[in-house]
């Protein structure tokens, strides 16, 4: 165990950056397989029927999680086949699977999610995430679906109207499950402080009810690559790995994986 930061700083020196990048350093410090989760974590993402931007964020996050060594599935109850939200169903880049579901409500979607989280674990030693698209209207129903409410990720811009919508969704989740982890990623920002301020606003607003804190999952940049990726149905992290959008996605994916591994049994 390094005792002093200067013991490890050489890992990050520019002269060593190419042959031994931070990803490799991180890989070396990963926990042993025995410390990793036995099942994938379920992260629910409210995404409307025509919300291609949030769907693109989710799919790209799944690819980033795979790039970081985790497993990722996107499960979505879709009316139309093929869905306009997603690329072609089935295994995609880096093994990320897009799995359509016939679920018509939260309960049946929960069943499908639990199945995905456990069947996917075969041979998996790295942990990972099943992203589950939840039609926002389903959150207003009386179904509880506790496995889907454990961990939710909301994408919101910093605009007041979007923040209000996210707040409404956060409260809907929290009303279904006390202590639910509701994550918030701020997208479309022009600078980091804009995301910080937006997150602070929603954190303060959810705080109005006791025991209901949201968790920050960074920021995303709506640069041109996001929209190109949506149109081309190609993950940003693979097509444009050095773009600001890819870096931001990777940062959010890392936060998700860190928390997923922290919570692992």
């Amino acid at each position: 165990m390094p005792r002093d930061l200067s013991d490890v700083l050489h890992y990050f020196g520019p002269e060593l950056a190419e042959p031994k990048g931070s990803t490799e350093v991180f890989a070396e410090s990963r926990p042993e397989a025995s410390e990793l989760p036995a099942t994938l974590s379920i992260v629910s993402v409210p995404i409307g029927e025509r919300d291609v931007v949030r769907a693109a964020f989710t799919w790209n996050l799944a690819v980033e999680i795979a790039r970081l060594g985790g497993r990722a599935i996107v499960l979505s109850p879709d009316e139309a086949t093929p869905s306009p939200l997603w690329p072609v169903a089935g295994p995609g880049p880096l093994g990320v699977e897009l799995r359509p579901s016939l679920a018509k409500d939260l309960d049946s979607l929960q069943e499908a999610a639990l199945e995905a989280a456990t069947t996917q674990v075969s041979g998996n030693t790295e942990g990972g995430v099943v992203f589950v698209r939840i039609p926002p209207a389903w959150l207003e129903t009386s179904a509880l679906a506790p496995a889907l409410m454990d961990w939710t990720l909301l994408f919101t811009s910093s605009a007041t109207s979007d923040l209000r919508e996210a707040l409404k969704l956060a409260r809907a989740v929290m009303s279904k499950k006390a202590g639910a982890r509701v994550g918030v990623t701020i997208h479309g920002v022009h600078c980091r402080s804009e995301a910080e301020t937006a997150f602070e606003r929603i954190a303060r607003a959810t705080r109005s009810k006791p025991g209901s804190d949201v968790t920050s999952y960074g920021l995303l940049v709506d640069d041109l690559q996001v929209y190109r990726a949506i149109v081309a149905q190609r993950p940003i992290g693979l097509a444009h790995p050095q773009s600001p959008a890819a870096r931001a996605l990777r940062d959010v994916a890392q936060l998700l994986l860190d928390d997923e591994r922290k919570e692992a049994p």
Binding site: C191, R192, A195, E196, F199, E200, A203, R204, R207, D213, V214, T215, S216, Y217, G218, L219, V221, P244, R247, A248, D251, Q254, L255
Partner: peptide, 13 residues
């Protein structure tokens, strides 16, 4: 309040 989390700066993005 919970902290905002991101390892990225404006320069990174």
């Amino acid at each position: 309040l919970p902290s905002f989390r991101s390892g990225l700066s404006d320069n990174d993005l």
